[in-house]
Computed example of a mutant assay.
Amino acid sequence: MKSSLRILAALAPLLLAACAPQQLVRHQGDAASLAQQDAREKQLAHADHWTLQGHLFVSNGQDGNGGTVTWTQNGDRYEFILRAPITGKSFRLTGGPDGAELDGLDGGPQTGPDAEALMRRVLNWDVPLGQLRAWVMGTRAAQGGVAQLSFDDNRLLSSLQQDGWDITYPAWDTTHQPPLPAKVFARKPPFMVKLSIQSWTMQ
């Protein structure tokens, strides 16, 4: 049961976090960088039907686990599927405005009024999934607090700090327009997570 919960914890921040390499931060953001970021965010404001696939690793400061992950977003509904690399066991988190369900635990499926409350109760993770949905796309969370941004030499986001999370973007997929993150690292001590995105499918 404990090993299942440790692996499942990777579903929580989905998505994110790890140590923020300082060399990624080039400058805080000139007018051109900020204008480009604003344009990206406007283009992605209504992007709510997509799928990302990749590899996820998460650590709580003592234990670490990971696997392949698929995140599908269909409007207000979402599905996260995490597959452990050795056992091949799958864990699935689904939900929407009507509640959330976590399946794959040894004790059977667990449900809750929303994903945040469910993960808080089952995994002891306090994760703002609404904000993470924006951060994984390299945008500020509209419902979050004031964000601090830094950019790389290509005027793409290199780091974002919002609501106590420190998110960095070591690599971008520029085959998409607008560009989308290829790697997303974030941390909120003691939690650290790495998300390496192999593919984005936008609908």
Score class of each variant (00 low, 15 high):
3 S>F: 03
5 L>A: 06
6 R>C: 01
10 A>S: 05
13 P>N: 10
14 L>K: 03
15 L>F: 10
17 A>D: 08
17 A>F: 08
18 A>F: 07
18 A>M: 05
19 C>N: 15
23 Q>H: 03
25 V>S: 15
29 G>W: 05
30 D>K: 13
31 A>G: 03
31 A>F: 05
31 A>C: 06
33 S>Y: 03
33 S>N: 08
34 L>N: 06
36 Q>S: 10
37 Q>C: 04
38 D>S: 11
43 Q>A: 08
46 H>T: 04
48 D>R: 00
48 D>P: 00
58 V>W: 06
58 V>N: 04
59 S>F: 03
59 S>D: 00
62 Q>M: 14
63 D>K: 10
63 D>R: 08
64 G>H: 07
68 T>C: 12
68 T>W: 12
69 V>P: 06
69 V>A: 12
71 W>N: 06
73 Q>D: 04
73 Q>K: 10
75 G>V: 00
76 D>F: 02
76 D>G: 02
78 Y>L: 02
81 I>Y: 03
81 I>C: 09
82 L>H: 00
83 R>E: 14
84 A>V: 01
84 A>G: 02
87 T>W: 01
88 G>Y: 04
88 G>V: 07
91 F>G: 09
96 G>E: 04
101 E>Y: 14
109 P>I: 08
109 P>W: 06
109 P>T: 06
109 P>D: 10
111 T>S: 03
115 A>F: 03
116 E>N: 09
119 M>V: 14
121 R>H: 15
124 N>R: 12
125 W>G: 09
130 G>R: 03
132 L>G: 07
134 A>P: 07
136 V>P: 05
138 G>I: 00
138 G>D: 00
138 G>E: 00
140 R>K: 10
143 Q>D: 13
144 G>L: 09
144 G>M: 10
145 G>C: 14
146 V>L: 15
148 Q>I: 13
150 S>I: 07
151 F>Y: 01
153 D>Y: 14
154 N>V: 14
155 R>A: 13
155 R>L: 13
157 L>R: 01
159 S>P: 13
159 S>V: 13
161 Q>R: 15
162 Q>P: 09
162 Q>C: 13
164 G>H: 11
166 D>E: 15
167 I>A: 02
168 T>F: 04
169 Y>W: 08
169 Y>C: 09
170 P>H: 01
171 A>K: 08
173 D>H: 15
176 H>R: 08
176 H>L: 09
179 P>N: 09
180 L>V: 09
182 A>I: 01
182 A>Q: 02
183 K>T: 06
186 A>P: 04
190 P>D: 05
193 V>M: 07
194 K>S: 08
197 I>Q: 01
198 Q>N: 13
199 S>Y: 06
201 T>F: 07
203 Q>M: 10
203 Q>R: 11
203 Q>G: 11
